[in-house]
């Protein structure tokens, strides 16, 4: 039985384009233009995953309401917010009302498909027991790469997909500096300088909510971030042996053709 995805989006061209792309991936797709239509359909039958736009019709925040309503109907169905808006406020609000991930509309269809596949994988595996070989352990940090979940000192840290992939990219090679491009690549997204700072800040906060003494993600100004084991050392350049000081945005905007997106989690 193919998986069923609901797309709630008021712009017909985008809605149909997404639907076509997802159908090509083998999903069954139901499309809704308004919050009421979507909600009515959800009540009849829950989708396996919902892609929700924030602004629907005249209500710029209809997506938030719909997320909350869908979350009330099902605590487990993955919700992906797909919006033109990319402000921190919108991202944080969206995650707070129960969305699992947040993607801006200028993400490419392959990005979207990758997200959806990852969300399904995480949903599928969350119930099955973890096997040791799937877990990356770095001191107090344990990352289950299959389920895409993180634990710090044996307590779960609630990360979005983007955040999980970023932490994974950093923690896999502790001490190595990951620049923006490397993080984007690993997290299957493209973000700008300002947004990656927000992401890292949010990740730190989530860990600090579990352990206030958390300071394993160090900023290496002008280069990127790295995972440090234990206390934060000096930020000397001798540690900059990262696998990729890499290219920065300005070197070749065209080098990443098809991969432009300004914000995602």
């Amino acid at each position: 039985m193919s998986r069923r995805i609901a797309i709630v989006e008021d712009e017909p061209a985008i809605r149909e384009n997404y639907a076509d792309a997802l159908r090509r991936q083998g999903y069954e797709v139901a499309t809704h233009a308004t919050r009421d239509a979507a909600l009515a359909s959800f009540r009849t039958r829950l989708p396996d995953l919902a892609v929700v736009d924030l602004g629907l019709g005249d209500d710029p925040d209809a997506g938030f309401t719909l997320c909350r309503e869908l979350r009330a109907l099902s605590p487990t169905v993955p919700i992906l917010i797909l919006s033109a808006r990319d402000s921190d406020v919108d991202i944080v609000s969206g995650l707070r009302v129960g969305a699992d991930d947040y993607l801006t509309k200028d993400a490419s269809l392959p990005h979207l498909a990758a997200r959806i596949a990852a969300l399904f994988r995480r949903a599928d595996l969350s119930s099955s027991p973890a096997s040791a070989e799937d877990v990356v352990v770095r001191g107090p940090l344990a990352l289950d790469v299959k389920r895409m979940t993180a634990r710090w000192r044996d307590r779960p840290v609630d990360l979005t997909l983007t955040e999980f992939w970023m932490v994974h990219a950093l923690a896999r090679h502790p001490g190595h500096v990951k620049d923006r491009d490397a993080l984007m690549r690993e997290a299957n997204t493209v973000v700008d300088d300002g947004t990656i700072t927000s992401h890292v800040k949010r990740i730190r906060r989530k860990f600090q909510a579990v352990d206030p003494a958390f300071d394993c993600i160090a900023t290496v100004y002008g280069m990127g971030y790295r995972w440090v084991l234990g206390r934060l050392g000096s930020l000397g350049s001798e540690l900059v042996t990262g696998n990729s000081p890499g290219t920065r945005q300005r070197t070749s905007p065209r080098g990443r053709a098809g991969a432009w997106a300004n914000s995602s989690l």
């Binding site: 712009e11 061209a13 985008i14 384009n17 076509d20 792309a21 033109a84 509309k105 200028d106 269809l109």
Partner: peptide, 20 residues
Amino acid sequence: SHELRTPLAVVRSSLDNLSA
């Protein structure tokens, strides 16, 4: 730039579909 994002997304998703 915000207003232009939606039409941009239309073009992008259409092109992505076309490539597929």
